[in-house]
């Protein structure tokens, strides 16, 4: 079983390489959207480990993303010159910075998780929300990180390959973890915490672990984002960004990796597609005018989806379970 998943991972990595090579010439706008999709997949799948599989409601994912974005940017900006402009050197530096950003976020996740994961439900949501604001507040007052002016000047290292390679790794790690014997603990914590504890599962340990791993990948996503947009601003990691990611998880279906990936893709494309709709010449005028208020339309679609499928698009359907 393990062999097959490993082959799948290698195959998707290969596909990332091919796609990156083959899609180099597409419109920068579509490239931008594709990168956005990749980053959102990482964020949504990693949050799904916490919110979906382990059943803890975290509202601070953008905070971890900020830690990763700023940590990795600071590293490449400060130490980037050491390895010069040689392609291998800078790529190495970049990947090292991404991982360091991830580790930084994981440490932050650990620091928040240990005291706060004794809380449940709404209380945990409030603590993670508070953490998000604290991170933002720290960055806003940290002069070396550009404070309120934002941090820019990073070299654009992020491309399709790295984005989707990390997305594939995220999916691989999360799927393998929750389908392993050890990982059943996550599901047990979600399904019935008291029963799980009675069975001898260290629920706090599992929660902290999910939190830390989730934070790690959010940090990596932050690093990818920073090295693509080349400019980060504390307002980009606010509460609304966290909610965006939560919406992807809920819409896709809590605890369904496939659904969450689908939702991440859908919710990245939809707002941009609605931008284009108002330009379609063959649409009647009144329809185009409606499409111009695209954020209302976007919200409306979300409401309809949630009313018709409260468990999420793919909630309760798990494609990967057949394998296990």
């Amino acid at each position: 079983m393990l062999e097959r998943t490993k082959i799948l991972l290698l195959a998707s990595l290969l596909l990332c390489g091919l796609a990156s090579w083959g899609l180099g010439g597409i419109s920068p706008y579509y490239y931008d959207i594709l990168i956005g999709i990749g980053i959102n997949i990482i964020l949504a799948v990693s949050l799904n480990l916490v919110n979906g599989y382990t059943g803890q409601f975290s509202l601070g994912h953008a905070g971890f993303m900020a830690v990763g974005a700023y940590a990795s940017s600071w590293l490449t900006l400060t130490f980037g010159y050491i390895l010069g402009t040689h392609a291998t050197g800078t790529t190495f530096m970049y990947v090292a910075a991404l991982l360091a950003g991830g580790i930084g976020a994981a440490v932050a996740g650990l620091a928040v998780g240990i005291p706060s994961l004794r809380l449940r439900g709404d209380y945990l949501a409030i603590v993670t929300l508070g953490f998000n604001e604290i991170i933002k507040g720290i960055i806003q007052n940290a002069e070396p990180l550009g404070a309120q002016r934002g941090l820019g000047g990073m070299v654009q290292h992020t491309n399709l390959f790295w984005t989707f390679a990390f997305a594939a790794i995220t999916i691989y790690v999360v799927l393998n973890l929750v389908h392993s014997t050890y990982g059943s603990g996550f599901l047990a914590v979600r399904d019935d915490e008291i029963a799980a504890e009675a069975m001898g599962i260290n629920t706090t340990k599992y929660k902290v672990l999910a939190f830390t791993i989730g934070a790690f990948f959010a940090g990596v996503a932050g690093g990818l984002y920073a090295h693509y947009k080349q400019f980060v601003h504390p307002e980009g990691f606010n509460f609304l960004r966290s909610v965006d990611i939560v919406v992807m998880v809920i819409l896709g279906g809590m605890g369904s990796t496939f659904g969450v990936v689908f939702a991440a893709i859908l919710l990245t494309i939809l707002p941009e597609w609605l931008r284009a709709v108002s330009d379609y010449p063959w649409l009647p005028e009144w329809l185009r005018e409606i499409a111009e208020n695209r954020m209302i339309l976007y919200s409306l679609l979300l409401i309809i989806l949630m009313l018709t499928r409260p468990q999420g698009l793919f909630g309760g359907i798990s494609f990967s379970k057949k394998r296990a």
């Binding site: 419109s27 920068p28 931008d32 956005g36």
Partner: peptide, 21 residues
């Protein structure tokens, strides 16, 4: 005209659209 919703991350995407598309 494209709306960036006062959100960080949006201007980069939009300006790429305005230039490329």
């Amino acid at each position: 005209t494209e709306d960036d919703q006062s959100m960080a991350g949006q201007p980069a995407t939009i300006v790429r659209k305005l230039i490329a598309q």
